[in-house]
Each structure stands twice: as C-alpha cells, then as structure tokens.
C-alpha cells in the first residue's frame, strides 16, 4: 500500500465525482462514472483487494456503462436546466 498514490487517486475520485454530478451532458456524466469505476478499481487492486477490484472493473466500468448508454439512447442527451 503506497500512501501518496492512494491520496492522488482519491483526490481524482472526488474531482471526477463532482464533475459527474455537475455536468449537463448526460453522456459525459456516464463516461465520467466509468472513469470513476476504473480509478476505484485500480485503488482496490493497489490495496491488495484483487477480487473487489476485478468485480468493480467488470460490473462498474463494463456492464453499468453499457446499461446506462443503452438507457440514454431512449431518452434525451441533455439535462434540462
């Protein structure tokens, strides 16, 4: 476990989470959530929890992104103000 790497990754996590809830483009929000899942998966692996990291990468970055994009295809892309 490397403390500075964790701190950098967690800082990026907070930034990406704030960006995902403030952005108006919903497709961009989905991609940001995918990036969030990917970074937290690397954090899990780096903390020696390979099982959790693998699950996060498969479900969070893979399946959930596909589901959300398929859902977005049925609605409109831009959030109303």
């Amino acid at each position: 476990m490397i403390i500075p790497l964790d701190l950098i990754a967690l800082f990026f996590l907070v930034v990406i989470a704030l960006a995902a809830i403030t952005v108006r483009d919903l497709l961009a929000a989905i991609v940001l959530l995918s990036a969030y899942s990917f970074i937290i998966a690397t954090v899990w692996v780096e903390m020696h929890a390979v099982d959790v990291g693998f699950t996060e990468a498969a479900v969070g970055a893979g399946a959930t992104t596909a589901f959300l994009i398929a859902t977005l295809a049925r609605t409109r892309r831009w959030e109303k103000r």
Binding site: F54, T55, A58, G62, A63, A66
Partner: peptide, 20 residues
C-alpha cells in the same frame, strides 16, 4: 471458491460487445 459472479459478468460483456 469465488469468481462465479465475475465470470458471468465478463461472459455477458462478450454478448454486449457482439450486440455493439
């Protein structure tokens, strides 16, 4: 033990790629 759920999700991801 372990890995059944993840393997199933990865297998489903291959079908998602096929549909894409």
């Amino acid at each position: 033990a372990g890995g059944g759920f993840q393997g199933g999700v990865v297998f489903a991801a291959s079908f998602v790629l096929f549909v894409t």
